[in-house]
Design a protein around this nucleic acid. Sequence first.
DNA 1: AACATGTCAAGAGCGGTGCTCTCAATTGTT
DNA 2: AACAATTGAGAGCACCGCTCTTGACATGTT
Lengths: 243, 243
Amino acid sequence: MSDAAAEAETARRTPRERARAQTIADIVLLGRDHLATHGAAALSLRAVARDLGVVSSAVYRYVANRDELLTLLLVDAYGELGDAVDKAVDAVPSGDHAGRFRALGRAVRDWALREPARYGLLFGSPVPGYQAPAGRTTMPGTRVVFRLISIFDAAHRDGALVPAASAAVVPSLSADFDAIRTELGLAVPREILANGALVWTSIFGAVSFEVFGQYGPDTFSARDELFEHHLTVLAGLVGLRSS
Amino acid sequence: MSDAAAEAETARRTPRERARAQTIADIVLLGRDHLATHGAAALSLRAVARDLGVVSSAVYRYVANRDELLTLLLVDAYGELGDAVDKAVDAVPSGDHAGRFRALGRAVRDWALREPARYGLLFGSPVPGYQAPAGRTTMPGTRVVFRLISIFDAAHRDGALVPAASAAVVPSLSADFDAIRTELGLAVPREILANGALVWTSIFGAVSFEVFGQYGPDTFSARDELFEHHLTVLAGLVGLRSS
DNA sequence: AACATGTCAAGAGCGGTGCTCTCAATTGTT
DNA sequence: AACAATTGAGAGCACCGCTCTTGACATGTT
């Protein structure tokens, strides 16, 4: 056991620390509820304190300020989305790359529709005055996109990507994608990666429109089918033949 | 002149009404500034009153409540975005359909990057507790998408859409798109329309990622080129050959 | 010119928010 | 049992949205 782990273990041992960790966990849980029902911008420490059965100033013993709670909820939501995506993707055989892609897209959409307020916290307009601490949020925040890229890369290594007539990538963009390729050790060519970036943002564009109510209430009655159709088209953009 | 217009003209005539309209316009202007700097959720009537040089309760003479001001700002922003898009599209010859499509996409992105907070109000997470009155917002809110569709339709009528191997549209979706086609009097086939819906959401997905800071600060240095590349790919989805 | 009407800004006040500080009580440790 | 760390409570500050009342002002009519 490492020193840090041992220290953490010791810290967990004392009843004080255990109680403290439990209280923080409760606060996050209550904050999650409050966030889901009232939205991110309306998240109120006082309301959390009320639900916790404690006076407002007491929660500051456990959470530095509102931004800190927001950060906790952010990593909490990122983690849950990442878990949902991983579970959905892992349920599809590793050889079925198109199936895994579709599973990822569906998992994102399903989670977003189930948790609209938390999705809004992650991918909606930034909370005014709040800047997410990169050190604590980039890691959980990049899980899903890394998973998506790994699907593309695995498909490419398996020779499962049909070479499509993809648009050429201008030199300045090539530098960006080449940097990503070397950093992540990818074999997939940069043209696919460039289209993959569009696929990535397009999934969230479609999901955001649905979650944020940009489609009118009546324009689309077959929203599941619409999203499935979009997934099919997007899969084609990277050369994934639908299974 | 219609009765309503005559009535409006008469109402405008009285100095009282003129002053009142001017005050409301000032409030919207100040609210726009406040929105741009502090975000939608932090929009404060008191702050607007301060900037107006008036006590807080006085603004309620002109604007019913915070939601009312939000609605005014919403239609104001929709109008400005629509104007920017129309201007950009009209600057391209009507026969250059691909050029008009790209102009639309660029106009949306440019406006969004110029006005991130107002863009967030239109296309970001909904403001908690606020429900936009459909009767006043759907009309200005659908200008851009109608313009996009009209570009697709004009290109189709000109025979400028190269028939691509587009995915088949399932029956339940066909009903939705056929309803749109008849309602708007479109000649473009539903397969193109289905891909056009994806193009529509994808543009906003890409723009939202950029405006809301979902790309890390370092992942893409050539963002203009990335968006141009995405436009090229998206144009191909509806069979628009880039000019 | 005098009056009645309509409109306005101002102020007080309600309950809510984030956050800080002090003080007393509880708790775990020794 | 005594000590020290930790905790909750309460008061308080400045801000918010919103309502109501009051007094001043301008307007249009008589």
